[in-house]
């Protein structure tokens, strides 16, 4: 059992009761602080070093082959707490050699950055790992409209992630080998 030790508080001595020595100590501390190294980051010139798991602006990413990953399942739209995402689903044309088995792709994909709370749920819920909160953190604009990221903007921000997630390629290979599902 932890034992609590109650310490007797000593009565203040005369010099302590004037507070002057204590004030002098404090003054010394602040004075020496003046010559310490500054913690300030000169922001626009110097950028902060972001940690690996930093959650910046949500973006859409391509797979390593440069193809669209999002399949317009609208799970992110559903999960987004402040309803920042709006997806207009579209279909992938049947004859697209590159993207066999993918039925849908977003026709339009908007994330309203005035609503987004950077919670990262969209990244978490996405079955295709198509949406990522990357390290872009300074988004600004002069109007409300400018703050709504459309699909082009989202892909521009996201780019291509070098991940090892070739889900649809695997599906295609499987079908070629006659082993669908």
């Amino acid at each position: 059992m932890a034992k609590t030790v109650v310490l007797e508080r000593k009565p203040l001595s005369l010099s302590e009761r004037t507070y002057l020595p204590q004030i002098v100590t404090g003054l010394k501390t602040t004075f020496s602080n003046m010559f310490k190294e500054k913690a300030t980051l000169q922001y626009p010139e110097e950028k902060p070093q972001l940690p690996q798991n930093y959650r910046g602006v949500p973006t859409l990413v391509n797979d390593p082959n440069g193809r669209e990953k999002c399949v317009s399942c609208q799970l992110c739209e559903f999960v987004c707490p402040p309803k920042a995402i709006r997806i207009t689903p579209g279909s992938v044309p049947e004859e697209d050699e590159d993207r066999e088995h993918v039925e849908k792709a977003p026709q339009e994909f908007e994330i309203n950055m005035l609503r987004c709370i950077y919670c990262g749920y969209c990244q978490e819920v996405c079955p295709e790992e198509a949406i990522f909160l990357l390290d872009e953190y300074s988004s600004s604009g002069y109007t409300r409209e400018e703050m709504i990221n459309n699909k082009a903007k989202l892909y521009e921000l996201g780019g291509t992630l070098p991940d090892k997630h070739y889900k649809w390629d695997k599906k295609k290979d499987a079908e070629v080998e006659g082993n669908a599902h």
């Binding site: 602040t30 004075f31 602080n33 003046m34 010559f35 310490k36 190294e37 500054k38 913690a39 300030t40 000169q42």
Partner: peptide, 10 residues
């Protein structure tokens, strides 16, 4: 300035 220096700012 002085307050900044005392608090490690510039």
């Amino acid at each position: 300035k002085v307050s900044a220096w005392m608090q490690g700012r510039v």
